[in-house]
Design a binder for these strands. Structure first.
Lengths: 168, 168
DNA sequence: GTTGAAATACAGACGCG
DNA sequence: CGCGTCTGTATTTCAAC
């Protein structure tokens, strides 16, 4: 089991989700603390697995990935072979940013990023439709992204025994 | 207009998308260079807007966001008022990680992260269904994520005049 | 949570190819 | 024009308090 997070930990995680390039000292100033304890806390958050990794966010437009689409896929059947065949094939496609195995109407939802509609057509024809397990595909295109990705809202996991002695 | 990316820039971007915590020196070793030019190139990639920001990726399970859902929304009508009303309301909901305005069958696709099904029910009943502009909603739940998010595939944007004198 | 010291990385300068 | 060596500065990191 993992340690409980206190209010300072939550604040650190929120800050790091927005901007992981801040120095410990800058984070410390925001929280009215000093760099050392911030550093220890971040190290612990990493070691305990709360922070999985740090990534750079690129501008899709500038690297010719300006068109994003959600591709909803139904397989021909739900055999174990079809599922693993599909997943194996999808993982190799660079246009597929994310692949989710879903409950409900669709078997998979893919988040796809390509240069333009021509490139998406190319992707469907030469990549996706070549996968044998595919039954039907429905596409919706992203016109506008209203909320940016990546940041999870953080609340304190159920805290049955609030510590009365937190110096924070 | 922005500068063209060469092979070293592409490599740097790929590395930084996977692990933004590597030091310039570590990146330099991977690319058989020294830290100085790497540092200069990263600075330029930031200044030119290729790299928008750096973020920490958290473990959804550990912060009680283990259930992810895609919520497909159709509005009652497509008036300008309905659209902006919906977007304004959505932005305030912490459970909504991403919000896309779509073409096609649905008006919006929301990526929602909550603790469990009970929390999702709560989210629908007390948050989403409270928005007046909402027409209908269809949910699919994520059972498994096959491909991780965030990393764009990078190719060299159309290179009409390949430089013959690249020292790289 | 604080202080202080050593190791390391950053962010310029400069000269070289 | 980009690379590499060098330099001062800031930051990280680890110790003891």
């Amino acid at each position: 089991m993992y340690q409980m997070l206190d209010h300072t930990d939550i604040s650190i995680l929120k800050i790091l989700q927005e901007n992981a390039r801040l120095t410990n000292q800058e984070i410390a100033e925001k929280l009215h603390k000093t760099a050392s304890p911030i550093h220890r806390r971040i190290k612990r958050l990493e070691d305990d697995g709360f922070i999985k990794r740090y990534v750079a966010v690129l501008d899709p437009q500038k690297i010719d990935r300006g068109l994003m689409a959600f591709t909803h896929v139904q397989l021909k059947d739900h055999s174990k072979d079809s599922l693993s065949l599909f997943e194996q094939a999808i993982i190799r496609l660079p246009e597929v940013l994310e692949c989710y195995h879903m409950t409900g109407m669709y078997d998979f939802i893919l988040k796809v990023a390509v240069k333009d509609l021509a490139a998406y057509h190319e992707f469907l024809m030469h990549e996706l439709f070549g996968i044998m397990a595919i039954g039907s595909v429905q596409t919706t295109l992203v016109m506008k992204q209203s909320k940016h990705e990546g940041a999870f809202p953080i609340t304190i996991p159920q805290q049955p025994f609030p510590s009365a002695h937190k110096t924070d």
